[in-house]
Design a protein around this nucleic acid. Sequence first.
DNA 1: GATGAATGAGGGTTCATTCAT
DNA 2: GATGAATGAACCCTCATTCAT
Lengths: 203, 203, 203, 203
Amino acid sequence: MNEKTMTRSQERRREDIVRAALEVFDRDGFEGARIDDVAAEAAVAKGTVYLYFKNKEALLEGVIHGVVKPAVAAVEEAAADTDMSAADRLRRQIGVIGKRLGEGQMNVILRLMIAEGPKYDELRRFYFREIVNPGMQAIGRCLADGEASGEFRPGTGQLHPQVFAGTAIMAAVWRILFDDLRPLDLDALLRDHLDTVLDGISA
Amino acid sequence: MNEKTMTRSQERRREDIVRAALEVFDRDGFEGARIDDVAAEAAVAKGTVYLYFKNKEALLEGVIHGVVKPAVAAVEEAAADTDMSAADRLRRQIGVIGKRLGEGQMNVILRLMIAEGPKYDELRRFYFREIVNPGMQAIGRCLADGEASGEFRPGTGQLHPQVFAGTAIMAAVWRILFDDLRPLDLDALLRDHLDTVLDGISA
Amino acid sequence: MNEKTMTRSQERRREDIVRAALEVFDRDGFEGARIDDVAAEAAVAKGTVYLYFKNKEALLEGVIHGVVKPAVAAVEEAAADTDMSAADRLRRQIGVIGKRLGEGQMNVILRLMIAEGPKYDELRRFYFREIVNPGMQAIGRCLADGEASGEFRPGTGQLHPQVFAGTAIMAAVWRILFDDLRPLDLDALLRDHLDTVLDGISA
Amino acid sequence: MNEKTMTRSQERRREDIVRAALEVFDRDGFEGARIDDVAAEAAVAKGTVYLYFKNKEALLEGVIHGVVKPAVAAVEEAAADTDMSAADRLRRQIGVIGKRLGEGQMNVILRLMIAEGPKYDELRRFYFREIVNPGMQAIGRCLADGEASGEFRPGTGQLHPQVFAGTAIMAAVWRILFDDLRPLDLDALLRDHLDTVLDGISA
DNA sequence: GATGAATGAGGGTTCATTCAT
DNA sequence: GATGAATGAACCCTCATTCAT
């Protein structure tokens, strides 16, 4: 099945399988997931999965790419908005990252990456290159711009961007592990975080 | 094998197995780990593993307990030190968490928890109860005490403790996934983080 | 697809498929051959193969028939030549068998027959009836005629024809298995064989 | 499972599996054989087969080695007997080969070699090196010795040994394919063959 | 008729767990 | 208690065959 020559209905089928795989991976983890279940969830025969993905690892890639690619667009779009103040840009940037990670699909991707990434080098590189690095750089630019404009105090541009993204990661991990034990108010958390760190860097 | 009636050498044996399992789980993940490999690494026969742990899940528990229990002590110890200023206590608290998560065994535990936690409820509860919740509470106490003493600005006691722990989690995840692609200076990162958030909450 | 009502181009298509199958069976064996590969080799779609052959076994039959039928004609033609001396007729007969088996397509057929024959009874019967038995009888007639005419010593007519065909079979098997390890000079081998056995039976 | 450190009962188990595999391979061919059936025939669990053979190919090797090795001894023993006349030595040599190939296990091996040999290079080389080449050389020595002693006519030493082994191969193939359609009297065939070729080369 | 995507039974292999020694 | 051979359920993947277009 050539990816370039897929018909409309084939593309839909491929998406069905990716969607099903995401769901099953979320429920059972990657190793624990059975292709049988993915197929059933996608309402296709087991063999059909292998028409679209050459093996289970390719399916994992498909799932991760499927979620990461649109997210890249969102991060880029947030970064492109350069009219606002540095603080507002930072708020927006962190907000986008936090929302994606704290809820929905990117949450599952993070879990898959942490669980399976160490075994699949190319996947780790892809994830770093496409989304993590650009995200860190976007934050870094906000910091540098804010310092340059005098909005943030001197030295802010040198801070690790991870300081500003950490809470979003924490929220994601919390959601994966403890959401039923102690639910987290994502918006309030991100607000606390931003208020605190922005106060910490404001001139 | 009753845990109460173990001889000295049996306890040592058990520890060998736990140590070996931690190593193999770190290398291959929990699902990817073979009991054969754990046994070989511990220099015992495969059947012996089952004398000390009734199945693979129990071995996972053993590994996690083995790392978490001493860490609990460290967190408690850090929290007990109430002579210092709130800021110093917070620095110390975050430092302990960050060091444990950013390097060494707790890093592996976090990965195991994120990967397998959703499948093993009791483990998640244990992890939350024993280490996460106490850690969050210890941070919360620092914040409340600092606010009460006027060291931190009003409202600080209401902030989510996750704001202060997030960077440590981020460091752990980074170490798991990207350490070879972009190494992280853990000390510098934690310093950036603490400087920023402490500035953000200081009165 | 009724074999009687095929158009010219359909017949050509069928032959293409048979030719392709012979090639793939030669390369991968019958069990190892994939219908996909046969179709690709014949430059038709996979489904098309099933328009001409109801299943893989029928394709095997088609391949074997396709090679055996013309060979039958050759054996018959060689047998029909009754003008020559018995020795010359025998030489010719063995030569035809040896050439067919030692090189080219009949070689592949022999391999397929030995590998798959035991599983496909009808095929074995066909092969025996159409080519093996007639071949043995043709040799037997040469021997009997030569004995009757005094050209061969008494008793020659009672000898097993297999004695005279064995070297050709050996050559075929050798070619299948050891051609790269120790190439065989087919003509020289057959000459040695004929010289020896003819000396052995000459009056 | 280390082959050197096997206990008596493990060796017996291994032999059981090899024996079972030979039987199933004989019945269904190598590709058609299911490990399940081999295990059942050997009265062990499927997994046990994999304790003794790392995969199906290794099992095929085990089967072939198991039959070829004792046969090598027989060929060597027959070749060692240098007291007899060249003709008797040749009779004996051909007899040993013919018996082995015409009946019993070597027959199955030949079928397996012809069917699967082309796919398993190492197996072909092993078979050639261990049994075919030594067999051909043993025959060649008989011929050369007989010529040297004047027992055989000049030039006999130059003849292809395959001329003398061919009928045995033919018998084997016949037995594989046509034994039910036209049974072969192996002893009579070999006698015919030897009488004929020995007459053909006698001085 | 021709196509090739879809199907799903089947089989090789792995590995957690058991148990006889 | 310690061992490691034995077990068999489970699962990924292949590929002959079908069938909607």
